[in-house]
């Protein structure tokens, strides 16, 4: 029986994928080049700016932000200040700024792409039927796999890192936007319609405000996923704390690996609590 199965020749899926990739790379080489150069330029600009802020001032600003974002509680503010001081103390300040830039770019772009996609999905059954499996595909595919097309399109460096992070971090914000809008109570949608709202008015006066906290939960997930992609992105040359994790791994250096990992955890907690508090603020 198994011999019978062996009679079927291997279907050339891998070759097919390569042909598609080659075609994309050749056809859009110019476009990819422009994206790479402008992306690199703007990200370096942001990193340089962040690095130019005196660390002391930076830490203070984050502390004050955390204090007000959490309704004047000291918990997160103290945690942020101590955590960031620790990262500075361990000599990872510049890497930290690189990581922050990468996460900011990846998550902002993911949100800019993701929210409209989510709205589209919520409005059209066909869009939902098409996008849903793509999102499933994106989320189940191991993050490493995205590195291959990223490198093919953009070479190595920070831009392909951001590109891979966007693909990896996109699904939650799309899904939550779709969910949030679909969960708006039917009676409120009917109320909006019955008063003669246009589609846009209904969207931005009723649906988006009501779906807001669900969408923000998605944004929070997207930010955290793009942070979790930092280590993987460093494999293709994206700078930041991820690179320290990677080199510690290659050299089996437990101590350095622990410090870099801990720094990422601190950063993740600050990002998470800050984005969550923006969500709670208006409730």
């Amino acid at each position: 029986m198994s011999q019978l199965l062996d009679l079927i020749p291997t279907i050339p899926v891998a070759e097919g994928a390569e042909i598609v990739m080659d075609w994309l790379t050749d056809t859009f080489a110019g476009l990819f080049g422009v994206i790479k150069e402008s992306g690199k330029f703007s990200m370096e600009f942001v990193t340089d700016f962040l690095v130019s802020i005196p660390p002391f001032l930076f830490i203070l600003i984050i502390g004050v932000l955390a204090f007000f974002a959490t309704k004047r509680k000291f918990g997160l503010a103290i945690f942020s200040i101590v955590g960031l001081l620790f990262i500075y103390n361990q000599g990872l300040w510049e890497e930290l700024m690189n990581t922050i830039t990468l996460v900011l770019f990846a998550s902002i772009l993911a949100v800019i792409i993701g929210i409209p996609l989510g709205i589209l999905m919520s409005k059209s059954k066909m869009a939902e039927a098409t996008i849903q499996p793509i999102l499933d595909f994106m989320q189940t595919m191991p993050g490493f796999v995205y590195l291959i097309p990223s490198v093919a399109f953009f070479g190595i460096g920070v831009v392909p890192g951001v590109f891979a992070s966007i693909i990896f971090a996109l699904p939650p914000v799309v899904r939550f936007t779709n969910l949030g809008i679909r969960q708006v109570p039917k009676e409120l949608v009917e109320a909006a319609d019955s008063y003669g709202s246009t589609g846009w008015q209904k969207l931005y006066k009723v649906e988006l405000p009501i779906a807001r906290s669900t969408i923000m939960a998605g944004v929070n997930q997207t930010v955290l996923l793009s942070l979790s992609m930092v280590v993987i992105a460093s494999m293709i040359g994206a700078p930041g704390i991820g690179r320290n994790v990677l080199s510690a791994l290659q050299q089996a250096n437990v101590g350095n690996g622990f410090v870099a990992g801990l720094s990422l955890v601190i950063l993740a907690i600050i990002f998470d609590r800050l984005t969550q508090s923006f969500n709670k603020k208006h409730d």
Partner: peptide, 19 residues
């Protein structure tokens, strides 16, 4: 239709339908 809904009729809902 939007014009009629805006100018001619308004609806009141069982569970109020308030935003």
């Amino acid at each position: 239709l939007i014009k009629v809904r805006r100018e001619k009729m308004s609806m009141v809902f069982q569970n109020f339908g308030l935003f």
